[in-house]
């Protein structure tokens, strides 16, 4: 399993549009993805679940990937988060 953590900088947090793009991005990988915020977590390939996680600015998210392409998955997640959020 591989994981990365990232502090959200976007003033309105992970809102609908970037959430949609992130899910799309992660959906391309075969690994199982989990996104965590503190004690809460969700399936990293599910839009509504991620939106309901209501991640805000300044909060840390941890993206975990487990599977054949886990390294590429977390790298893609990190690149996306850094660029968009």
């Amino acid at each position: 399993m591989q994981s990365i953590s990232y502090v959200i900088k976007d003033p309105i947090g992970i809102h609908a549009r970037p959430a949609g793009s992130l899910i799309k991005e992660l959906g391309a990988f075969s690994s199982k993805v989990t996104i965590k915020r503190g004690a809460d977590s969700c399936d990293g390939k599910k839009l509504l679940a991620l939106m309901k996680l209501k991640v805000k600015q300044g909060e840390t998210v941890v993206v975990e990937a487990d599977g054949a392409d886990e390294e590429a998955t977390v790298k893609a997640a990190e690149a996306f988060l850094t660029k968009n959020l």
Binding site: A16, R17, G20, I23, K24, L47, L48, A49
Partner: peptide, 16 residues
């Protein structure tokens, strides 16, 4: 346009 893509993704989401 992005908003409608998100709408479309909601419909594709089994949580919905």
């Amino acid at each position: 346009a992005a908003l409608f893509e998100v709408h479309s993704m909601m419909l594709a989401d089994t949580d919905f």
